[in-house]
Amino acid sequence: MGTNGIAIDVRQLHKWFRNNHVLRGVDLKIPAGTATAIVGGSGAGKSVLLKHMVGLLSPDSGGVYIFNQEMPNKYSRRLEEVRRRFAMVFQGSALLNSLNVGENVGLGLVEQGRLSREEIDRIVREKLTLVGLKGKELELPGELSGGMRKRVAIARALAMDPEIILFDEPTTGLDPIMAQNIDSLIADLRDRLKKTVVIVTHDMDSAFEIADLICMIYEGKIVEQGSPEAFCRSTNPIVEQFISRFKRHNGDRGQGIRD
């Protein structure tokens, strides 16, 4: 892992919302071509951290570096260029309700205006098939279940063919079988397409299943990071408490989680 360097480098990142000091010096390096899971309790600032990685939020101090280049601020013209390397799947799917499923998936490509209509239709069909929603192009987001919306959001992210894909709780609210499918889809993105993947998740099953690196965020800082095996053996009481439930369900499998 990490053969081609660091994709995202977060350095001493601080973020306040008014008086709420959410991120308190986050340091995190995400190697290119790997899957990194960020875990932590709700309200810990996982989504806020993820939004800094695509420049949707700007740091109050510290910085975010993408392949060694500092993330441009939100007024810079270079920001769009950097963002083209990214796609993000939002926690609440964030589909445009006025557009149907096919239009949502093809939105980025249509607005870019580089590909022909037929080409875009083909990509939309391909990505929808990939997430198990073949033939649902004409349905409206409002008619879909939460899990289906999430899969449309994943298809929309994949349609842009980005280098780095950020997932904000991709399996939350999905049934176990669908969650398993999404997990293997994400693992596949890394293994076959060599994408850099960052997953925010509550679901320790999927973290252990797909991540090369697991980081735990607590009180605005990364308190533990390491391979799944190392993470599991962590003696940090916060980490132990967080994964104790997972361990109880799965037996204490310190080693060999991946197989």
């Binding site: 939004k51 695509v54 949707l56 769009e80 963002r83 083209r84 990214f86 796609a87 993000m88 939002f90 926690q91 609440g92 964030a94 589909l95 445009l96 309700n97 939105l107 980025g108 607005e111 870019q112 959001a153 929309r156 842009m160």
Partner: peptide, 21 residues
């Protein structure tokens, strides 16, 4: 409604300028 459901953010990550769109 689009802002609070992160649709505006989603537009931005698709390299779509919400002011234009």
């Amino acid at each position: 409604t689009m802002s609070v459901s992160e649709e505006i953010d989603a537009l931005r990550t698709l390299s779509i300028n919400p002011v234009r769109y």
